[in-house]
Computed example of a mutant assay.
Amino acid sequence: MAGSRLERIGTIYSRTTGLIKSGALSWDDRPLWYDIYEAFPPQEEPRFDRPAPNIKLKKIFYKEDEIRAVFHRNNKYIGAANMFNNHYKSLTQKFIEKYHVIEDQYKGEGTKEQIYADAIESLKREKENQKEATVEEVEPISLSTAFKEAKSSQKNVQETKINLDVKNIFKD
């Protein structure tokens, strides 16, 4: 029993207890969960052959889940979201916020399809405005001016070069 890896022969707790009692596993090397399992044992032993409990699960849906589902069904290529950046809102979050704002403007008179279409249009307009703002910030430079700037910066770098003697670099 101690060398068994099969879930059919005892539980993981009983096999670990057997390993500790036989000396194959020292008390100091016991798993982290072992003490918790002993302090708070389950009401029924978790065995592979125990039938699943007949518990009715509640379906939990939030108000925006339906909106999110429709948005993702109609827009397959949304892009990746950076989960590490809490200050950045994903496209889905922005859409849901727009949807709620437009829904409040309609005051219950518009259909879901109208609100959805208006929210999509609002997002598109916002994206176009952002593109225009970034384009306006960059000053157009002619090609000859860009070449002249690159040439002058290259000359500055060449003037500041230091002559190094590789053979005598460590002789100081």
Rank of each mutant, 00 (worst) to 15 (best):
P140K: 10
S142Y: 05
I78V: 15
D172S: 09
N163A: 09
E113G: 06
Q130A: 04
P46D: 14
E132A: 12
N168Y: 11
D172H: 07
N156R: 08
H100P: 00
I20M: 07
K161L: 14
F71W: 06
A39G: 08
D165I: 05
V135R: 13
L143I: 07
K58I: 04
F40C: 15
V70W: 04
K63C: 08
A2I: 13
N129G: 08
K151F: 15
K21C: 03
E103Q: 15
A39S: 13
P41V: 07
Y34E: 08
D28C: 02
E97D: 10
R73C: 11
A39C: 09
I115Q: 11
A146I: 02
P53M: 03
L123V: 05
F170S: 10
S90K: 11
D104G: 03
I20W: 05
A146L: 00
Y99L: 00
D35C: 12
E137S: 10
N75M: 10
T160D: 13
P53Q: 03
A2G: 08
Y116C: 01
K171W: 04
H72I: 04
N75L: 11
N54T: 14
F61T: 13
L164Y: 00
F48T: 07
I102H: 06
G3S: 04
Y88T: 05
F170A: 12
I55W: 03
G79Y: 05
Y34N: 06
I67Y: 01
D35H: 14
Y34I: 09
E126R: 11
K63A: 13
E137Y: 00
K148G: 00
K161T: 12
D28I: 01
A81T: 15
I115C: 12
A81F: 08
G10M: 08
A150M: 06
N86M: 14
F95T: 11
K155N: 13
W33S: 04
N85S: 12
K21D: 12
I60V: 15
Q158E: 02
E38S: 06
A150P: 02
K161I: 14
E128M: 13
L91E: 07
N129P: 03
I102V: 09
T160A: 11
I12G: 04
S152N: 11
V70C: 04
